Simulated scan of single mutants.
Amino acid sequence: MAGQPEKKPQSVYDFSLKDATGNDVDLSIFKGKLNILIIICLVVYSGMTNSNYTELNQLYEKYKDQGLEILAFPCNQFGEEEPGTNDQILNFVCTRFKSDFPIFDKIEVNGENASPLYKFLKSGKWGIFGDDIQWNFAKFLVDKNGQVVDRYYPTTSPLTIEYHIPTTTTMAGQPEKKPESVYDFTLKDAKGNDVDLSTYKGKVLLIVNVAGLTDSNYKDLNHLHEKYKDQGLEILAFPCNQFGAQEPGSNDEIVEFACTRFKSEFPIFDKIEVNGENTSPLYKFLKSAKWGLLGDNIQWNFAKFLVDKNGQVSDRYYPTTSPLSMESVYLR
């Protein structure tokens, strides 16, 4: 069968496929050249098109010289959002988004005619509803040995994958090496002081993106903090104004609100972003560890991450989840 090796494939390097211009591409050409490989099924006409192409371009530009390659496979199986010819797809991708990564021949990723490459990829990592691809922009991360190491859902921002790319590049709040725990991060508190999260080693952390328009969450968080602060629980609050513009104030105003109105004593940090291009590196790490119901994005104010004593994310709670419901989890 076209694109399928005679023997059972052992890695993605065992496959040869056609690119969008009709040339045969033996994926073994990437062998030994890559630190990591992202394989994605993409489309032109989709609500997720702009953000995915823009972020894929950012990743590719930043890491292509450090061993990253992105392989894009057009697919028309989801909402018929990729009806065009290969020439039309190439023109759209290269003209509108200036993408430089390789675009391949249009394929099917599910069903009887699924590409042998995708059969291999799906057998390596299952999705939440089985092995089928759910929609456009599903992503597979492949290591330098050609093995699938992770699978990301269509709603997952490509920028979240950044933490799984081996690199020595630094950015604000991100360590030089790949972070292994929340203890690898240093962030500013609301007063502008650097806080090394390693100071919380050995404690259970509840990390929350907070905003001003709330009573129940602050009251419940205060209850947990007062009850368990001497037993090893710490609550870290990160103001964020991305949801309903409910946190528009300055750091001083936020601290005044939390400490005066609610008498909160837990640490309040500098205002950050938790979704999008400017997402705090800490939140990229948190979201990459635990998925939400609709992907990795934070849904609203007061999403919560529970971090164990080793700095690993042990659970994720939705904004509607009462902090008090975590009491039994913490006490286990």
Rank of each mutant, 00 (worst) to 15 (best):
Q4W: 05
E6N: 13
Y13H: 14
D14K: 08
D14H: 13
K18P: 09
K18N: 14
A20V: 04
G22Y: 15
G22H: 15
D26C: 11
L27D: 04
S28P: 00
K33W: 03
I39E: 03
L42I: 13
V43D: 01
V44D: 04
T49V: 03
N52F: 05
L59Q: 10
Y60D: 07
G79V: 05
E81R: 11
D87T: 14
Q88K: 14
L90V: 06
L90K: 05
N91C: 10
F92V: 12
C94A: 09
F97V: 09
K98Q: 13
F104T: 01
E108R: 04
V109N: 03
G111P: 04
E112M: 11
N113A: 15
Y118K: 02
K119D: 04
G124Y: 00
G124V: 01
K125F: 00
W126Q: 10
G127R: 13
D131M: 12
I133P: 01
N136P: 00
F137V: 06
F140L: 12
D143R: 03
K144T: 01
K144N: 13
G146R: 01
Q147C: 06
Q147A: 11
V149E: 06
V149K: 04
R151A: 13
Y153K: 03
T155N: 09
T156V: 14
Y163A: 06
P166W: 02
T168C: 11
T170H: 15
M171K: 15
Q174S: 07
Q174T: 02
K177V: 13
P179I: 04
S181K: 12
Y183W: 08
D184H: 05
F185T: 03
A190F: 01
V195K: 12
K201L: 11
G202W: 06
V204S: 07
V204C: 04
L206T: 05
L206Q: 00
L206G: 03
G212V: 09
D215S: 14
S216D: 11
S216G: 06
Y218D: 07
Y218H: 08
L224E: 01
H225Q: 13
D230F: 11
I235W: 00
I235Y: 00
C240E: 04
N241S: 14
I254F: 10
A258Q: 05
K271C: 08
K271I: 07
I272V: 15
E273K: 14
G276V: 12
E277F: 11
E277S: 08
N278P: 07
P281C: 12
K284N: 08
L286G: 03
K287L: 07
W291R: 05
L293I: 12
N297G: 07
I298L: 13
Q299F: 05
F302V: 02
V307E: 12
D308R: 09
D308H: 09
D308I: 15
V313S: 08
P319F: 08
T320V: 11
T320Y: 01
P323R: 09
P323S: 10
P323D: 07
L324K: 03
V329K: 10
V329G: 00
R332F: 02
